[in-house]
């Protein structure tokens, strides 16, 4: 890992990733929405000893701003070898499950814009014939559940998209990593209980950094116990799952 672009760098997990790779002699470009927070984050990373930190303000839901971010990355970092897509939104599930606008927005942020961004950046990696694309999806995408199937379907769709992209880029020697964290202690899970089950962003970030360095596994469950757990949940027959209401 020499040069990394982080989309959604202000998310709690991405911030920890950025902090942990400071010592690895990596140049980074952080893309996020709030210029004030990006500047704060850059200052912090520089003081912690980062080699080079570029920031770019963009609302990645907007495809034009996405393209602007991509071009900025090509211009500034030129030859970046890692992309981490870390943004996502879990809109307040209380507000409206039956509101189609709410559903559309949830799907747009988590799936449509993410798939578009990955397509855009894949171009760069395809030409380069080397590198690593990684995106944070969720264990929620492994099975539809009443509590968060809208978010889950977007993340599940993204996981499927990544699976296809991985196969497509395999001949070029580009690795694609699907990161599936369980619930992590971030602003997204403010309403989650019991709190003790939340993973710490630091430990999730550490596993992500390790995966980015090793360029594998293809699908990273973090913390690791989610892999057998989700395998079990996926294996539950539909009639039982429906009645369990979990």
């Amino acid at each position: 890992m020499k040069k990394i672009v982080i989309l959604g760098a202000l998310s709690a997990i991405a911030r920890q990733v950025a902090r942990q790779i400071v010592g690895h002699d990596v140049e980074m470009l952080l893309v996020g929405r709030s210029p004030r927070r990006l500047a704060e984050l850059r200052r912090d990373l520089q003081l912690r000893g980062s080699k080079r930190v570029e920031i770019f303000q963009a609302d990645l839901e907007n495809l034009e701003e996405q393209r602007a971010a991509y071009e900025y990355a090509r211009r500034q970092l030129v030859d970046f070898d890692v992309l981490l897509l870390a943004y996502g939104a879990l809109l307040d599930p209380k507000s409206a499950v039956c509101d189609s606008q709410w559903v559309t927005r949830q799907l747009t942020v988590n799936f449509v814009s993410a798939a578009a961004a990955l397509t855009l950046f894949a171009e760069h990696f395809e030409k380069r014939m080397e590198g690593c694309l990684a995106a944070i999806t969720s264990v929620a995408g492994d099975r539809g559940r009443p509590a968060n199937y809208v978010y889950g379907s977007a993340k599940g769709g993204l996981a499927l998209f990544l699976q296809g992209l991985r196969a497509r880029l395999h001949p070029c020697g580009v690795s694609v990593i699907t990161i599936k964290p369980g619930p992590v202690d971030t602003p997204m899970t403010e309403f989650f209980q019991p709190r003790r089950l939340l993973a710490r962003p630091e430990s999730v970030a550490a596993e992500i950094v390790r995966a980015l360095e090793r360029r594998r596994p293809a699908v990273l469950y973090t913390p690791a116990y989610w892999r057998p757990l989700m395998a079990g949940i996926r294996a539950l027959p539909e009639p039982i799952m429906r009645r369990l209401q979990i």
């Binding site: 499950v97 009443p146 509590a147 309403f191 009645r243």
Partner: peptide, 25 residues
């Protein structure tokens, strides 16, 4: 079985936000 009854899901489609329940931990 009553616990798995389908009606329960209709009345509470999403878990109530924990913020209202108080934190004892």
């Amino acid at each position: 079985v009553p616990v798995f009854s389908r009606r329960a899901s209709v009345s509470s489609p999403v878990p109530e936000s924990s913020l209202g329940r108080g934190r004892r931990d």
